[in-house]
Amino acid sequence: MSEIKDKQGRSDEGRSLPVESQSATGTGKLIPVYVMGKQYMVPETLTIMKAMEYAGFKFIRGCGCRGGICGACATVYRKEGEYKLRVGLACQTVVEPNMYLTQIPFFPANRARYDFSKLTSAPEEIYKLYPELFRCIACNLCTKACPMDVQMMDVISALKQGDITRAAMLSFSCIQCGLCASRCMGELPQYHIAQLARRIYGSNIVPRAEHLGQAVKAINEGRHEEWLRMLMEMGEEALRSRYQEREMEPPMAGEDWVPVNAEYL
């Protein structure tokens, strides 16, 4: 195991430092970045998040999953000599020399409250909850501001045309960081509107899975109870042999595959 420790950068004894901080120290040369206008020298190989931690920031806001999916670390930055504002996730974007950056950990966009169980699949429901949808002037700034490459203006256009399905599909990768809303001239809360569209699509437009209802019913009727109780009372040896004997569904089997043994179905 000692070799694993080497790989992870630590020995069993050297447990004082979390491994990320060691990899964060890195070997790259130091470059200047400007966090909210103030210069810090950080290793060039780090992400914005790790660079800020390296510099001594301890995040309360602006840090979440550290894996590019939660939307907590939306960042706006500009490179030296450019006027263009760029966006990225601090946990995914690597620092560059003379980058000027700030995080936008929260955006106070409007969110409608609704009784979801009463909504239908009619687009008018969305229009009623978010009338500002029609303030969109198709400037495309929302799309340009999206760190996930969601075509957010197309999502809004689809909804204006009543196409909830298209809006749901197009917005599936949305992480709800709010950068789209921060750049919107029409003051739309795109990410909240898209969430509503996806829920309506998932619940009211796509057909429900019939087999789920059958499974729930069978369980509620207690069809499996006797077999389960038998397994629960079984000794480990007997359980092991039942486990070894399981008939495996072949990986490449099609949807129509059924097992030879139907005794416990």
């Binding site: 039942r242 399981r246 569904e249 416990y264």
Partner: peptide
């Protein structure tokens, strides 16, 4: 979830 009763059941999920 054992959602497809023609080939699966809580019995197999349990095992």
């Amino acid at each position: 979830a054992a959602s497809k009763m023609e080939k699966d059941s809580p019995y197999y999920h349990y095992l």
